[in-house]
Amino acid sequence: MGLHTLTRQLPLRIPLGAFFLNSGLSKRGADRPTAEGLHGFACTAYPFLKKLDAQPFVRLLSAGEILLGAALLVPVVPAAVAGAGVSAFSLGTMGLYLRVPGVREEGSLRPTQEGLPLAKDVWMLGIGLSLMLDDLIERCRHRLLMSGS
């Protein structure tokens, strides 16, 4: 990755990477009630998660967030890879937003107060897609330059 590309991506990668790293580290030692609460919330939108116990679910969630945070913060991880991870995570949380009762106003996409923390994840989708698009454009530009020489 060139310096110009890295400079352009850092304002997206650093704050989001730090956010994911902090979130994952915070969940790492979650006690049983916290794990059960997170697991129960996720199971409301994604019933297949009921097959997992709460503690292993939160450990996996924690590990995924730590890994995603590290991928964003380490510039050698391609933007397309980091962006795909962010986009996938964001789509998962947006699924929660669309499926969990009480986080949206009745008959609307507008969030309730309880839904605001999930509604903001649409920005993460934008960041993830921007990183993937930036990487794609950069690779195409590089190929064009290499084929033209």
Rank of each mutant, 00 (worst) to 15 (best):
F19L: 15
V100E: 04
R28W: 13
T34G: 06
G24T: 07
A54I: 02
F57L: 08
L109W: 14
G95T: 00
G115M: 08
Q113H: 15
V77L: 07
R32H: 10
S147G: 10
Y46D: 00
R99D: 04
H142W: 13
M124G: 10
A84I: 03
E105T: 10
G115E: 01
G102A: 02
P78S: 09
F41I: 06
S87W: 03
E138G: 12
M124F: 15
V103M: 08
L21I: 08
R104H: 09
T5G: 10
V103T: 11
G17H: 05
K51C: 11
L6D: 11
G85L: 06
R99Y: 02
L125H: 00
K50N: 12
S130Y: 05
T7G: 12
L3N: 12
L3Q: 11
T112Y: 01
L129W: 00
L109H: 01
A88I: 07
L145S: 10
L21V: 02
K27M: 04
G128I: 07
I127H: 09
V122M: 08
R99V: 11
M132C: 11
G24A: 03
Y46L: 06
S147D: 15
K51E: 15
M1L: 13
H4T: 12
L118I: 01
L67H: 01
H39T: 04
L67V: 11
L67A: 15
D31N: 12
W123Y: 14
L21D: 07
R32Q: 14
I66M: 14
T112N: 07
L118Q: 08
G24D: 01
Q113N: 13
A35L: 03
G95L: 07
S62E: 05
G69Y: 04
G126W: 07
P11S: 03
S147N: 14
G102N: 05
S147T: 09
L129G: 10
T34A: 12
L3F: 12
E65K: 02
T112A: 03
I137S: 12
S62C: 00
L61I: 01
V81G: 03
G92V: 02
L49S: 01
R13L: 08
E138F: 15
G40H: 06
